[in-house]
Amino acid sequence: MERLNDEGQWIVLMGFMVCVGIFFLALIITQSTVVGQTTSEAVLEFPKTEIQDTRSEIIDIAKDWETYTTAKRTNLMDDLKVISMARKNAVVECSITPGAVNDSYYSYTRIIIHYNNGVTEYDETFLLSQPLSQPIP
């Protein structure tokens, strides 16, 4: 009867090591493509330009806030809220208080912005400065 041949053990061991090496390389390749997908998905999902755009529009409105009548103010805020909800699935809340804070040279309009589209939430309190015509001595 022929016995099990135990020669060439090193070659067998090397074969196993190469196998395990290739196996780990395959693991790394699968991970790398998943990473590419998740990062681009995260960038697509994050409403960067929408928040920037909403923010700049609200600050533009706040600059002219005191020249608007109450009806015009309500209309603008309703436009912002209703269209955001309908087209971007985002809750946008905003309050504009002129002259909320004052110092010797400036009067500040306090703007509170709230944006939430279910995935990303953004809150900001912004003080918009306007120079006083008559600085307090």
Partner: peptide, 13 residues
């Protein structure tokens, strides 16, 4: 698994 994941990842970029 790699080939099926690769296509949507590419489209997202």
């Amino acid at each position: 698994g790699t080939t099926t994941v690769y296509t949507p990842g590419d489209v997202h970029i």
